[in-house]
Design a binder for these strands. Structure first.
Lengths: 209, 209
DNA sequence: GTCTATATACCGATAGAC
DNA sequence: GTCTATCGGTATATAGAC
């Protein structure tokens, strides 16, 4: 279980560069980098092992990216962008707050599954550097807007109001976000069933009726 | 927001050792070490900064502990021990599965709050070293036993059975565990109110009735 | 664009004086 | 028990040949 992933022949092509372009694919690099960050932790991942996994050398990697932090930046931006567009789409709906909230919940589960490694990385960021702090700031902004939606749904009468909106939305997204810890696509539970199960547990609870 | 915590005058007393014993307090060391691990990440925390925060030197710290990993080991053991004793206490109850499960949920929230930094650290461990792998193994064992309890409660008819026990308990503990990300004791919501709110959302859901 | 070699800094850990 | 000094190793990042 040492986790030796084979090098990714698709991201870089070594040699004299006589093969067809492109000799390097940023998306593929990012994918492998993010997978490595998630396995070993961002801080614990060195440029050397990253280059090794990418099937290239440290210097070659530095030629293409400014460093580890640029990879982190791009990865976090991708995850945040997708999540923010879920909020935006829900905001454009001509529906009550409860329906808009449910659409955000389902959308978040879908993004989480579709962008699993990227969102996983996002959820582990603590704010040690400027890049991380900016990601934390955008996450907080997202949480804030969800909380406003919960508040509106409570005012509407469709969500129970004995808990404050902040606590409610934190518990809600705590449950949703935890999905990255165990869900792997391709298992018995498919993406839509997962979204159904999650939203149903959140709204109706676990007690038998 | 660089987060410069002042050195802990209580864990070590510098100088010629002419003060009253003990000149060093393992629990205090552990507390500060764990707080630092949680702030900056375990891997990203060096022995040097640890010693600095403890108000002592690298060598002095090494005199008392074998290294960073011993501190991690002790911290994880504390968190796991508390969680396991919650399961044990619930198992000894003369009650149905649903009541035993509810007691585990409440107990877990209480431990989580009482041992907040230790449980936080536990939940972030990924299994990179032997110490971490052993902690992950114990966590999985805990999850497995919770899942069995959920299964029993479903068989009893007190929990909805349209979701499998594994998914249910993962969502359940996903919500509970996420509390470490935002709850800080001493706020408007006290520990028991938090436990009530969490268990109530889990069992009854958020929809207004 | 990729290579080897290297600069500079910090890491965990230890030796030996006091 | 704590200190200074230092070991060997690895980190990020760059210079310069090809």
């Amino acid at each position: 279980m040492t986790g030796n992933t084979p090098p990714a022949a698709t991201a870089f092509r070594r040699g004299n560069g006589r093969t067809d372009r492109p000799p390097y694919d940023l998306d593929a690099v990012l994918e492998i980098a993010v997978a490595t960050f998630n396995e070993r932790g961002y801080e614990a991942t060195s440029i050397s092992v990253l280059a090794e996994r990418l099937g290239t050398s440290k210097s070659a990697l530095y030629y293409h990216v400014s460093g580890k932090e640029e990879l982190l930046q791009r990865a976090l931006d991708r995850a945040l962008g997708e999540l923010e567009s879920v909020l935006e789409a829900a905001g454009a709906l001509d529906a009550g707050a409860a329906d808009r909230l449910e659409s955000v919940l389902r959308g978040a589960v879908r993004v989480l599954v579709a962008e699993l490694p990227f969102v996983t990385l996002l959820l582990r960021v603590r704010g040690n550097t400027d890049v991380e702090r900016d990601a934390v700031r955008r996450r907080r902004e997202f949480d804030h807007r969800v909380s406003q939606l919960v508040h509106a749904a409570q005012a509407e009468g469709s969500l129970r109001a004995d808990l404050d909106a902040g606590t409610t939305s934190r518990l809600l997204f705590g449950m949703i976000n935890s999905i990255v810890e165990w869900y792997r696509p391709g298992g018995a539970l498919d993406d839509e069933a997962l979204a159904d199960a999650t939203v149903s547990v959140a709204l109706d609870g676990l007690r038998a009726r």
